[in-house]
């Protein structure tokens, strides 16, 4: 049951104001996105058309707290196929960005952000790695990036790096 008291009519404008979110209002619910979605093919709990409807209806809390917004594999199939150029992959990014700011970030992305912030890459590079690279005839790679640490600390939502 949807109770109109729980709906936030401004949610779609909030999404539209995010990077890549501008075209959300164009959706006419044809379902081309859902038909071509490789994640949906495996698990029906991920349904791009339904997510867009929920956003347009203003189901802010339900969407932001959900697990399913983190399931977009960013394959851009829906992005390329959408007849209304909704740019759904970017809308999903916008939703995840808002969710992260509200403290609902998925632990996997929180960990990725921590690693990139700390090491400037998804992996910590140790002396052992560079020795291995040398053995393969490959040049050494840098271990720490203070400027990436600064960028991430200055621009990521505070709670993400806590």
């Amino acid at each position: 049951m949807i109770d109109s008291k729980d709906l936030d009519p401004n949610f779609k404008y909030e999404v539209a104001a995010e990077i890549g979110g501008a075209n959300i209002n164009r959706c006419f619910a044809c379902g081309t996105c859902t038909v071509g979605c490789p994640v949906r093919e495996i698990d029906e709990k991920y349904n791009p058309r339904k997510i867009i409807r929920m956003v347009l209806l203003g189901m802010r809390e339900r969407v932001l707290k959900s697990d399913f917004i983190w399931l977009c594999s960013t394959c851009y199939t829906c992005y390329d196929h959408c007849p209304q150029d909704v740019q759904l992959t970017s809308i999903m990014t916008a939703l995840k960005n808002i969710a992260a700011r509200e403290g609902y970030i998925h632990p996997s992305f929180k960990e990725q952000a921590r690693l990139v912030s700390k090491f400037g890459r998804l992996y910590e590079v140790e002396d052992f790695d560079n020795k291995k690279r040398e053995k393969f005839g490959l040049p050494p790679i840098k271990k720490n990036f203070d400027d990436i640490t600064k960028i991430t600390k200055d621009t990521l939502p505070k709670e993400v790096l806590q």
Partner: peptide, 20 residues
């Protein structure tokens, strides 16, 4: 000085990804 491209933080914050 090339680092991560920014993709891993795009889902968390598209602006941070863009800056990286």
């Amino acid at each position: 000085d090339f680092s991560c491209c920014g993709f891993p933080v795009k889902s968390t914050n598209a602006e941070t990804s863009l800056i990286i």
